[in-house]
Design a protein around this nucleic acid. Sequence first.
DNA 1: TTTAAATAGGACAAAATTATCCTATTAATT
DNA 2: AATTAATAGGATAATTTTGTCCTATTTAAA
Lengths: 144, 144
Amino acid sequence: MFSKACEYGIRASTYIALKSLEGTRVSLKEIAEKIDSPVAFTAKVLQQLSKNHIVDSVKGAAGGFQIAKANIDQVKLSQIVYAIDGNKVYEGCGLGLKKCNSNEPCPVHDKFVQIRADLKNMLESTSLYDMTVGLEEGLTALKR
Amino acid sequence: MFSKACEYGIRASTYIALKSLEGTRVSLKEIAEKIDSPVAFTAKVLQQLSKNHIVDSVKGAAGGFQIAKANIDQVKLSQIVYAIDGNKVYEGCGLGLKKCNSNEPCPVHDKFVQIRADLKNMLESTSLYDMTVGLEEGLTALKR
DNA sequence: TTTAAATAGGACAAAATTATCCTATTAATT
DNA sequence: AATTAATAGGATAATTTTGTCCTATTTAAA
Ligand code: FES
Ligand code: FES
């Protein structure tokens, strides 16, 4: 569904959001531990997210990653997916034709478009705040 | 969503079904042309599908691929996807946790499970016969 | 019986994705 | 000012996926 990079990106952003709500900045090392991802690879993903202004990075000692509290419920999963995987999730054809196109649809087009729309809708309506709900209480998890 | 191999597999099977309905067997070369896929790679995919008894292969001159007419509306897309991509589509976690598990769900679990169920349902309820409807009339296409 | 046309399958190559390592830069603390 | 802890980013490596090539095998037809 999503690339590994994107999966790490969502999990990392969610963890950063969780800690930002508590008012603390987190280091790459801590993030990678808490979401069980390869440190250096996660760094690349976070660079990407930082460039896209989805997370803020602070260099130097006592630096790390954070998200402004006011933004946590504004940032949607769709933005993260788009920043990392691009629009293929939204515009790609389920059978791999050059581009999904209802003028010359593939045989699964009608059904596929619906599922994709549901997915898109889910991503666009889920904020990082939504993602954090339940994490503290252990109702949901970012690694396992 | 699906691997390239799987996309080729679905398109190839659909074309084979179309021709089998007309009572003719088709060669790998023709299939690759009609679905616009790399010949040798498509051969591997068809070997896989043949081993899984999703298509029948006939060796030798005048050989090729076919599907028994009685099976065309029995073979579902879900079988093709499973034969090539395995069960990751059905059992994988949207955020890449080891395994999707409602006992210790990731933050998108509930929403993701629904979408995945819709996809699964679509794949299980779409037969190769369904796929062929509209192809002859040019209402749908396997390449573009 | 030979030839030709087809799939099967092993070996290999290319490309994309995932992952690691090292150095540069930045900034707080000592 | 020096040290230390952090991200940035370039180079490279490993792995997976995708794609190619060649030979073996099979079968119909000449
Ligand atoms: S053309 Fe294939 S999904 Fe739209
Ligand atoms: S645990 Fe992530 S989708 Fe089920």
